[in-house]
């Protein structure tokens, strides 16, 4: 296999803008000047490599990695999917990091002051590495919705945060996975900041095939990263 000479551009028709007024923290934080085009050099065609050696044995099981004296409360779920590029080629051996609220909608983070209980048996952070076909798999509990200060009576839909590297510096992605049928999606400025045509890509699908009988419901969330190009991108 030849080394890639570039990656497909970030598709700005699929990603949210830096400044989206309804998400009220963005107007003072997003860059305001046009981005300067940068043709990939060795510095961008390379990127951090974290493989299976990075993973502890309970890291991909959030129902166990924070357990102190029992199991976490909530609806046990499996979250799995394929990491691939835009042509459907798998992204193997890449690190997937996740973090989420507990079933009551409370993050363990010290800054979270939401009046909902912490769960002594749930931490909420984990990671795994994709297999040779780009597949990942986590066990966890379904995160709860929680209020935030963006606007009166603002609530975040149930979601799990994802962080991925992919094969290069350019393929980095931080995103959030949502759940099908959540009524809060239509009200959430973080979700709605995404161009309409691409919003469905953020919503996982329930799968009875992934569901384990007598144990846990299954959700599938495939993730598409920028793909390597065979020839240099024309400017």
């Amino acid at each position: 296999m030849t080394d890639p000479t570039g990656y497909t551009p970030r598709d700005w028709g699929s990603h949210p803008p830096y400044i989206y007024a309804d998400y009220k923290s963005t107007p003072l934080r997003g860059p305001t000047r046009p981005l300067v085009p940068l043709k990939a050099t060795l510095s961008e065609l390379t990127g951090p490599v974290y493989g299976h050696e990075t993973i502890g044995k309970l890291d991909a099981d959030l129902t166990k990695n924070g357990a102190k004296n029992g199991e976490p409360l909530g609806e046990r779920i499996i979250v799995t999917g394929r990491v691939m590029d835009e042509r459907g080629r798998p992204v193997p051996n890449t690190l997937v990091e996740v973090w989420q609220a507990n079933a009551a909608g409370r993050y363990i983070h010290k800054v979270d002051q939401h009046d909902a209980p912490l769960d002594p048996n749930f931490f909420g952070g984990g990671r795994c590495v994709t297999d040779s076909e780009g597949r990942y798999r986590f066990y966890t509990v379904k995160p709860g919705a929680y209020p935030w200060g963006n606007h009166p009576n603002a609530w975040r839909p149930n979601h799990i945060h994802f962080s991925l590297f992919g094969p290069s510096y350019l393929t980095r992605l931080v995103t959030q996975m949502y759940f099908p049928g959540d009524p809060l999606l239509a009200l959430d400025p973080i979700f709605l900041g995404t161009p309409e045509k691409a919003r469905d890509r953020l919503i996982s699908k329930f799968s009875i095939d992934v569901t384990e009988p007598e144990f846990a419901l299954g959700y599938v969330f495939d993730i598409v990263l920028r793909g390597a190009t065979a020839t240099p991108m024309e400017s």
Binding site: R10, D11, H15, E86, W99, V111, A198, R201, D222
Partner: peptide, 14 residues
């Protein structure tokens, strides 16, 4: 290129 890029979302406060 048949699969659209998964949109980015904020890293959030937590």
């Amino acid at each position: 290129e048949n699969f659209g890029q998964t949109p980015s979302q904020t890293v959030g406060p937590y």
